[in-house]
Design a protein around this nucleic acid. Structure first.
Lengths: 321, 321
DNA sequence: CGCCCGGTTGCTCAGATGAGCAAGATTTCA
DNA sequence: TGAAATCTTGCTCATCTGAGCAACCGGGCG
């Protein structure tokens, strides 16, 4: 900290002017009289104060977005769209996730063209997005799961419920993927994928007109560990190999590459290439623990649209301060 | 927390409008086109957003003051003047004290009429005020100490140095009060007060045209404990009797009354009545631990001017939130 | 069925503000 | 020192914005 920085007279004046302008809402003219300056000088001081960052304007509201950050994200990453919710005055990660989910629901509702088929993953975040969607948010959107996980999930049915909920609220049908997320043996996985019922769903998923998914961090709190697909040790091993998190059940490193091809081979769901080639792939990611995976996803083109919180967005932009 | 509060359409619109206005700085007209509203509606939405408190404007600068809080303080307490420094983006109490001391120095520099004799107390805060004063801040201001404490002070001379420093920078003379702050026996105190040298200083102090002083909290970290005048146990006992802190060495309760008349009788310095009757009595008080004593001082008319930090000011106003 | 009333909308108009320009002040460098 | 270069100042003018007003809308009530 530079304790002894020189503060020149104009800087002080600009602060006095700002106080009178923003706190006392006097006109620049009145301030001019008070400080014995012309009103033009006051205007310039004010502009200077803004430019130096002494004036901070925050919009404090759960639905507030950070348009300037969104713009920077779009420009820096080539995303089609970026939605960044403000974290001003937020207590914890939970509130942040809720706000982000709300924003994702809003985005989905306003999405044009309306997707005929929407491929979705499952998890806490997606579940919350479903909750925030309003009845009738669209008409005739069919929903299809893009990765396995229904049966083994501890709170059985959350994954299915998410898909059904989203479809129902859009007066469409839900198609579930009746398969575990990860199988123990490659042969089992190949067998299940060749099953007509499963193959049909995967084909539908591959042909979806838009995707909506979240991502998980790579640690012992991951949903895949929680659901019993992986042990904490297995995840720790993946981390050693460079994993930063998972997306549709597949663990990737910071460059967006599959970390463990063998494991990946046993994972049921669409391929990452599908997401990379999709015209609309919406990633919804919030919370401090997901900065790394968010960065990896955006950096490697796994989504075209990112819905996230301000801190995650700034982490992606490399703006730690 | 009300999670399910209804957010009406206008509220959401006003947030969108605010984002475009403050973050993207578009004109109200442009926003109107974007949101399919007339520019008047946009203006009203913006006004509504401000009125609802969704727009927060902060001036982030070490020298920034909170004029609105100052005004409220003046109105609520009848103070002649109130100076409140912003605590926006402040790390710890130390930074807060430094800012407040700076503000006190500024106030003193601008004080009119310039006092011929300035009565001051001593302590960490006053020392820092002295440091922040600029060479030549006034011409011919004489400084006189208003309470004892020179000799016993651990870092001997700080108290004296403060007075000398302030006087020197104003091309004036310093008069020191050559006495301990508190004496062990009443007789000793009476003896020392009747000594010609001491009596003369006290007379001068009583006749000062303005006073500048700080205050101490009542706990084991008090400067009087630190200097060896009182033990931690004695202070604890004072607290039991209702003490919230000390001012010019005298402990008062939340109503501004002397807590322990016996102890007070052994304390050397001007009487609190002197401060109450003074035309200009400037109190400089900063930090979370001093909220109670600040409140007591202001509430009981012990100062005409208060220089403090935002949190302390809000505590005095009863605005915890 | 018509009327009244609170609330909202679009507008006029005056005051507030920012962009751009030319004159004046200050610094820099030969 | 002198002159060029740069910065600062005060100004004009066009635009932006808020106050206040009249018209309008929707619903309750006689």
């Amino acid at each position: 900290m530079e304790r002894t920085r020189v503060i020149d007279t104009d800087e002080l004046l600009s602060i006095r002017a700002a106080e009178l302008y923003y706190e006392e809402n006097k006109t620049q003219d009145e301030i001019g009289t008070l400080l014995r300056l012309t009103r033009w000088k006051v205007g310039r001081l004010l502009a200077q104060a803004k430019a130096s960052g002494f004036i901070r304007i925050e919009i404090v509201h759960p639905r507030a977005r950070r348009l300037s950050v969104e713009r920077r994200l779009r420009e820096a990453t080539g995303l089609t769209d970026a939605i960044v919710v403000s974290s001003a005055g937020v207590a914890g990660d939970e509130e942040l996730q809720s706000r982000t989910a709300q924003a994702a629901a809003d985005y989905l509702t306003g999405l044009r063209p309306v997707p005929r088929t929407l491929g979705i993953s499952w998890g806490r975040t997606l579940h919350e997005v479903a909750l925030h969607l309003k009845q009738g948010w669209a008409h005739g959107v069919n929903v299809v799961q893009i990765n396995g996980g229904v049966s083994l999930n501890r709170r059985a049915g959350t994954a299915a419920a998410t898909a059904v909920n989203i479809a129902h609220k859009a007066a469409g049908a839900a198609t579930l993927l009746p398969s575990p997320a990860i199988l123990e043996r490659l042969e089992t996985k190949q067998a299940i994928e060749s099953d007509r019922a499963v193959a049909a769903v995967l084909n539908l998923a591959t042909a979806a007109s838009a995707y909506l998914f979240s991502a998980g961090q790579a640690d012992e709190f991951s949903a895949l560990v929680d659901s019993g697909y992986l042990t904490a040790e297995q995840v720790a091993e993946l981390v050693r190999k460079g994993a930063v998190g998972d997306i549709v059940g597949r663990y990737i490193d910071s460059n967006g590459n599959i970390v463990d091809p063998e494991l990946d081979g046993r994972t049921v769901g669409i391929q990452l290439e599908q997401l990379r080639q999709a015209k609309t792939a919406i990633a919804v990611i919030a919370g401090t623990s997901k900065h790394a995976i968010a960065r990896a996803i955006v950096g490697s083109g796994l989504c075209t649209v990112l819905v996230t919180d301000e801190d995650t967005a700034l982490a992606i932009l490399g703006d730690e301060a």
